[in-house]
Amino acid sequence: MRPGNAAAGSSGGREADLRLADAAASGDDGARRTLALRLADRMRRTARFLLRDEADADDAAQSAMVEVLLCLRRYRGEGSLEHWANRIATRTALELVRRRRRDAEREGRGDAALPAPEETTTCGDEPEVVLRQRLLRCLDRVPDERRATVVLRLVHGMTLEEIARETAVPRNTAKDRLRVGRQELREAVREDPILGAALQERLP
């Protein structure tokens, strides 16, 4: 099952989602808050996986959440609210990836000037937080466009056609980016003993 669809839920869950969305769209402040609190973590993580810069990721997640709140009438209950909101977060983050790429090109900066990843976890953090941060650090070593392709594949389970459509490139370009990006990510992960050990446990 696709990760993105995992939360699609039952029809009863979707009906509850629809009721919540309707209430929020009608201006019910409590419903808006409930909905935003429920979606916030996942949308922020989705954006952070796609964007190297935490501030950029936060901007993208905020913009996506605003769009969710302003466009709730468009939610028709065909999947879970989470899935719908994550698509918006993904699309918004990808737009920012493209924008950053153009900025870099205009300023003559290439992919070589990737910032050094920073250690952001502490001893007391939960294992998932540590692993997530380590995986993000590995992703930070993959240039933006290849990173986006890899994340869309690994995290969101998109097909090559879907990745090509989302990133607005031909299928073969998406394929090349995925091929190189996967290799770069594997190499980065190999150098991280904790992440490497976590992966070992999951190997088929």
């Binding site: 990760p3 995992a6 939360a7 973590d41 996942r42 922020r44 993580r45 989705t46 996986f49 953090d125 939960e126 998932e128 937080v129 692993l131 997530r132 995986l135 994340v151 594949r153 690994l154 995290v155 389970g157 996967r182 290799q183 990510l185 594997r186 992960v189 976590a198 992966l199 070992q200 999951r202 190997l203 088929p204």
Partner: peptide, 25 residues
């Protein structure tokens, strides 16, 4: 090994995105 690592990474990444909130979050 490469595809196996990808599959494992995909599972881990998807789980980490879907995991419950951290204390900081």
């Amino acid at each position: 090994p490469a595809c196996a690592a990808d599959a494992a990474l995909a599972g881990l990444a998807a789980d980490l995105v879907a995991a419950g909130p951290s204390a900081n979050e």
